[in-house]
Design a protein around this nucleic acid. Sequence first.
DNA 1: GCTGCATCTTGCCAAATGACAAGAAACGAA
DNA 2: TTCGTTTCTTGTCATTTGGCAAGATGCAGC
Lengths: 193, 193
Amino acid sequence: MSKNTLTLFLRNSNLVSFAAANEISDIFTHKLIPRNQHQLTEGKICDEYLFLESGYMRAFAHDTNGNEVTTGFYQPGQVVFEVSSFFNRSRSKENILALTDCEGWFITYKQLNDLFHALPEFREFGRSILVKGFADLKTRMLAMITETAEERYAALLKTNPEIFQHAPLKNIASYLGVTDTSLSRIRKDFSKK
Amino acid sequence: MSKNTLTLFLRNSNLVSFAAANEISDIFTHKLIPRNQHQLTEGKICDEYLFLESGYMRAFAHDTNGNEVTTGFYQPGQVVFEVSSFFNRSRSKENILALTDCEGWFITYKQLNDLFHALPEFREFGRSILVKGFADLKTRMLAMITETAEERYAALLKTNPEIFQHAPLKNIASYLGVTDTSLSRIRKDFSKK
DNA sequence: GCTGCATCTTGCCAAATGACAAGAAACGAA
DNA sequence: TTCGTTTCTTGTCATTTGGCAAGATGCAGC
């Protein structure tokens, strides 16, 4: 069990020097999240900034009718946390749970703020994570408005094929903004091409 | 012409002290943007972090078929900038233009970074702007997936009625994720209720 | 005022998607 | 393994939305 992947992840951002990456990594705590266990439960305040080393996770919320809607997927190499709850110290409207057994490294809100204060390099890193999340969400929003469900499906299949091996199709359906019935038909048509 | 509204805006965040708000405000430059003028043009790097004091603005992008899609509206009291282009120093895929004559106060990327470095309070403020934008976009995404076009229309009418006086309906239609034809019908049905 | 252009509405029809329900298949717990 | 639950597919039908085009309206510039 080593922190190599985390250190490398920080270094690869090109925002954190070798020395700082080591210093930062040392603060992180190792964590195992078994399949189906919640990393974050709605109503709680998100207090972990988690670097996901292995495994897959899913975030979901409930709509006004109480139906589950998958809001995001996480794969190895991503930082897992709910932005609004984490930074505003407010109750999360989302759940995050492990689709598979997961392994990662985390720091708490306080530790993150201390690091931000002490290390400008890590501040830059934190900002880049936020900005990337923002940009990805914007891209997804644009796709939602301008692309057909089949195009969104094809794009997900291309950019994130692994998720199909770990998440049930109904989760992927609500992530794509369609019912599971529709996704099933889209897949049937798509496979014919 | 005074910086009162900007100073008050900083203070009202409850993240910036009175002294710091004055200090920060002093750095900002006044700016007038006449109706229909671009505040940001796609292909350019967004280099202004603009506090909008009066007037309304619209952001839009182009989909793969070259069609215009409105990605956001800005009203007085909001900060206007394209997150990804501004922080990554990359070419913007979006345009931002004035729907009405506008007045505001801005700083450049360099000035913002210097302020972030010098004043932890302003860093907090900057983060809160980013986090709020993120949360709003998430909310909109969830609405896009779970609500009908009519519900999204009704919500916009309630939360942002002023925009209907300044933006043409076709812009509002693409923002809501429907064609202008559909929006026209939705409005007809909606007014009957 | 007139002219031209953009905006908005409306009708008609097609395509996409949803709602509901039944059945098959896969999976997990005992 | 067996049982029960969840997941996935498929059929039927209704609803929503889009594409296209025509006409009406409004607005800006001359």
